[in-house]
Structures are given as C-alpha cells and as structure tokens.
Amino acid sequence: MMTDRSTLVEVRSVTKSFTRGRWYSAQRVLALDSVTLSIHCGSTVALVGASGSGKSTLARCIAQMEKPDGGEIWFDGRNLTALAPSACRRFRTRIQLVPQNVAASLNPRWTAAQIVSEPLCVQRWGRANDRLRRSLELIESVGLDSSTLQQNSSHLSGGQRTRLALARALALEPRLLILDESLASLDLLLQAQIINLLIDLQARHSLAYLVIAHDMTLVAAMTDKVVELQQGKIVRQDVYTC
C-alpha cells in the first residue's frame, strides 16, 4: 500500500490544552502532550486510544481547525503553524476531515448534488455546469447511483450518507483524509464495503489516511502504522510492513 515514501504530514512535539469550567473553577486539561508523528504520502495511519486520550484533538489540529499551543505541523514541506491564516487557506483544501457523526454533518434540506458541490462553490471551482459534472463523477466514484444526485440527503440511508460525505471530502482532491470514527455508526457489512472503497480510492488518488478507530480489527486490513494515544501522549507506535 505504501506507494510513495515521502513524508506528507509531520507533527513535531505538538501540545494543546483546553480550559474547562468557568473562570472561578477553571481547570487546564492537557489534551496533547508533545506529540510527534509522521504520515507518508499514500499511507494509512490508525490512531487508537481510550476516549479522552486526545485522538480527535490531534485530528483537528492537523486539519487546521484548532491551533496548537506549541510545536509545529509540517505539511508537504511547509510549516503550517508558522504560516499566516490567509496563506493556510490554500492547504486546508488538501486536508479533509470526515467527522464522527457523518449523517449530522449533511444539511437535511439539501440534495446530494448541492452537498457535494458546496466545497466547489466555496472555492469558486469552475462554472455551474462543470460543478454538476464533477459532482456526478464524485458520486459515482464512491459507488453511489447517479440518481441519488437529486435526492434529498434526509432520504438517504446511513451507508449512502457516509459515501456522500466521502464524496464531499474528495471534491477538492485532498492529499490527506482524516476519518474521525466516521464508520462507527454503520453495521459490519457496510463498514467492510466502505473500507474496500477507501482502499480503492487510496490506490487511485494516492491518498493518505489518518483513521481514528476504536475497533482495530476493522482498519487493520489497510493500516501501515498504528499510533496509540494515552492521556495526550503517544505510548505506542507500530509500523506494519506489507
């Protein structure tokens, strides 16, 4: 699975803490404690750990949704933490996060076409016709029928919604896809189907994955490296060689 050995993402001793409670009873919680991690192009890294161990925080830091308190995040040879926010914008399209609750991240009033083409609209990608054609491509690439395009997202099944969210994440041709337990709410058969789809997409677009999972057995088939977090610290890093 490792097609390209160059490093895509490098996380260097990243620290992040949150304040909990109100000002009179404030507590600082250390969510990430100097985490160092690297993801190669086209590889898959699984992030495991108990709840509250900082998996999602790390994912959000890499996706530029949180600013780390300390440390550096390098992406494709550039230090994202040192870049101005406006310069960061360009890289945000390269890293896409598929959230934990996939179904809730889709606007229930919109059709599949509207949802998939939103990132394209936001980035002012092409004309309306081009966007529609691209949406159709995307929808078909995740194994959805082209007739779903005009369907309302609230009328889709759980598996269809997960595929739709994947299509949306792929719209801007990212290099890294972060799956934050995105498959947890699906049944086993569907999970297996989607994992096969992910492996297929990885081969076609040389995508790197950061997969956050509770259940290692599922993602084991596609993982190159397993990183275990415990209370914000990396306690284990296993590299599998295929």
Partner: peptide, 24 residues
C-alpha cells in the same frame, strides 16, 4: 451539527447564514 461542519469546511459566514442557518 451540519452548520458547524460547514463552518469547519471553511464556508464563509455570509454563505453560512444565508444558505444554511436562515433556511433552517
């Protein structure tokens, strides 16, 4: 959640309010 997701995806505030929040 889908509004927060849209914000996280970098949808501008203007678009967020007029396309997502106000219709809902």
């Amino acid at each position: 959640t889908y509004v927060r997701a849209a914000r996280a995806h970098g949808v501008s505030e203007m678009r967020l309010w007029f396309r997502h929040v106000l219709p809902a």
